[in-house]
């Protein structure tokens, strides 16, 4: 464990909690892409299958359980509890355009052709594109509430911090996981456009982020 990875995990947890609290307190999931949240729940489910078979550390196990619980709770709030506030008419990104290439790639590029390893690789590739429906929804509506942009900021920051963690681990323990690194870089690149808007509009304007 290093400070970059710890900061990344905390940033990830903060993002998930920001979103969950926003939906719960406003009793509405307007402007939130349910599809992205389902994809994130799928990412955690396929990545943490070793939750009961491999024990890494208390921290690792606790964080996996927390991420799984909070992501499923978020999906539950969107599609069940506050479903009448869900903007399905704006959440129209075709997730099959993400799932098909990700499934194909995880069969092609993996460390071992075993179910657990392929599902882990699937979760890594899927996480890189899971935010697409949410970003697409924001471009479609042309705006995002500032709390939603803070969620996206911490979500994008988490994987950027993981990249720092991978650089650190390569130099200190000459460890590197190419699949995770390539996918993590792609994932962070997808956030760059949002980061630009976040720093130029939200942090300065202090209001909604309206797209040009």
């Amino acid at each position: 464990m290093n400070v970059f990875r710890l900061a990344g995990d905390v940033s990830h947890l903060v993002a998930i909690i920001i979103l969950l609290l926003k939906i719960w307190r406003s009793k509405s999931c307007a402007g939130i892409s349910g599809k992205s949240q389902v994809l994130f729940a799928l990412v955690f489910t396929t990545r943490y299958l070793d939750l009961f078979t491999v024990f890494i550390s208390v921290y690792n196990t606790v964080m996996k359980v927390v991420f799984l619980a909070l992501s499923y709770a978020t999906v539950y709030l969107i599609y069940m509890r506050f479903r009448n506030s869900y903007n399905s008419e704006n959440d129209t990104f075709r997730v099959e355009f993400l799932l098909v290439p990700v499934i194909g790639l995880s069969f092609l590029e993996n460390y071992a052709f075993t179910p657990l390893e392929i599902l882990w690789t699937f979760s890594i590739f899927l996480e890189a594109v899971a935010i697409m429906p949410q970003l697409f929804m924001i471009t479609k509506t042309g705006e995002a509430e500032s709390i939603t942009t803070h969620y996206l900021f911490f979500l994008g920051l988490y994987r950027a911090l993981y990249i720092a963690n991978w650089v650190w681990r390569y130099h200190t323990e000459s460890f590197y996981d190419l699949i995770a690194i390539v996918s993590g870089v792609v994932q962070t690149i997808f956030f760059c456009d949002f980061f630009y808007l976040y720093f130029t509009r939200v942090l300065r304007g202090r209001g909604k982020m309206t797209l040009p």
Partner: peptide, 10 residues
């Protein structure tokens, strides 16, 4: 296939 890496990251 390269060797499977230890999965100690979240």
């Amino acid at each position: 296939d390269e060797e499977a890496k230890p999965k100690d990251e979240l």
